[in-house]
């Protein structure tokens, strides 16, 4: 066939799209701005719902890569243009290629939790994010808070940067509810005597075996779920975090002290997505994620023939959804290039 496809972004979506395209016989270049591929998955300790290790998952995905795939790391795409029936793509370092099709796999960026000033991230030591917690798990270090103590209580705050118009994010980040349940269980496994609380607005256990994991969190680990969104957190004299929340099901405000507070940071479009979309002339949508041609029928195509999307650049997804989306994108590309 000899057709050439450039995939932009070497996280799980880009890696899997490239692997699938190569298997279908296309020449593939995978461009990555960082020195190493893998995206956010590099830092993620374990994946829901099976607690599959992030490292193993990434290794398996990477193993699927054909040796014919050219991986162009440390290259930030600065030019992207449709010329007749092909595209020219160029990087900040002078790298340039032509392609018959382009797949955007630019992923997401983690919501910057500093923006929720009232939660005190960056101010109170024992307020951390879900990503910080994954790093702590992955480090294999003793599970202690920033004051060196084993926390007697750990709190998880759902929807940080998601479903919050105060930070301009109306969307649900989809994965945080189940991640909180997973992390809460992991905390209980490390600290069986700790009390663990999840503060949630809704629990969106949409995937297979997610509800089971939630039930296990209740039944086996006695993790408590309090329906209410945090209004603020402060620090007491011992460095504990005092949170205020309404117990909406009792209709009363509630105050509780925890030794560690974990903010379930949501997904936002990666900062590189919008400039790339602008270069191509893709319409911007209000939430900043790329709009596929049709959200039900054509989820990998865009309004520009030859430009495809896969993974979280078109909206929050789990790793398994991302991988399925990537394979589906490869088929959409193949369909386009054959015609």
């Amino acid at each position: 066939m000899g057709k050439h496809v450039v995939v932009i972004g070497a996280g799980p979506a880009g890696l899997e799209t490239s692997a699938s395209l190569a298997k279908l016989g296309f020449h593939v270049t995978l461009v990555e701005k960082e020195d190493v591929s893998g995206g956010h998955l590099k830092k993620w300790h374990a994946l829901f719902p099976t607690l599959l290790s992030g490292k193993d998952a990434l290794e398996t995905i990477t193993k699927g890569l054909d040796s014919s795939i050219k991986i162009q790391t440390a290259t930030k795409v600065t030019g992207l243009e449709a010329v007749n029936d092909y595209f020219t793509i160029s990087g900040h370092n002078g790298w340039q290629e032509k392609a018959d099709a382009v797949v955007l796999t630019t992923g997401f960026q983690l919501f910057d939790s500093h923006r929720k000033e009232e939660y005190g991230y960056g101010i109170y030591e024992n307020v951390i994010t879900s990503a910080d917690l994954e790093e702590l798990f992955a480090s294999g270090k003793a599970f202690v808070n920033r004051h060196g103590n084993k926390p007697e209580r750990v709190g998880f705050v759902h929807c940080v940067g998601s479903r919050d118009e105060k930070v301009n994010n109306l969307h649900c980040s989809k994965v945080c509810c189940i991640t909180a349940v997973k992390q809460a269980i992991e905390v209980k496994q490390l600290l069986p005597d700790a009390e663990v609380f999840c503060f949630y607005m809704d629990l969106r256990m949409f995937g297979r075996h997610y509800e089971e994991l939630y039930k296990e969190a209740q039944e086996k680990y006695n993790i408590q779920f309090i329906r209410g969104r945090l209004s603020e957190s402060t620090e007491d004299r011992d460095g504990n975090i005092v949170v205020k929340v309404e117990d909406t099901l009792l209709g009363k405000p509630l105050r509780i002290k925890v030794g560690l507070l974990v903010l379930m940071a949501g997904m936002e479009p990666a900062p590189d997505t919008k400039p790339l979309a602008n270069m191509l002339g893709l319409k911007n949508v209000s939430d900043g994620f790329i709009q596929p041609l049709d959200e039900v029928l054509h989820t990998n195509s865009t309004e520009i023939p030859g430009v495809f999307v896969a993974g979280t650049c078109s909206g929050p997804k789990s790793v398994s959804d991302t991988l399925a989306d990537a394979r589906s994108a490869a088929l959409a590309v193949a369909d386009y290039l054959k015609s």
């Binding site: 991230y121 101010i123 109170y124």
Partner: peptide
Amino acid sequence: MKLEGKRLIW
């Protein structure tokens, strides 16, 4: 408490 965190907000 990390004062530099507050300084960033200030």
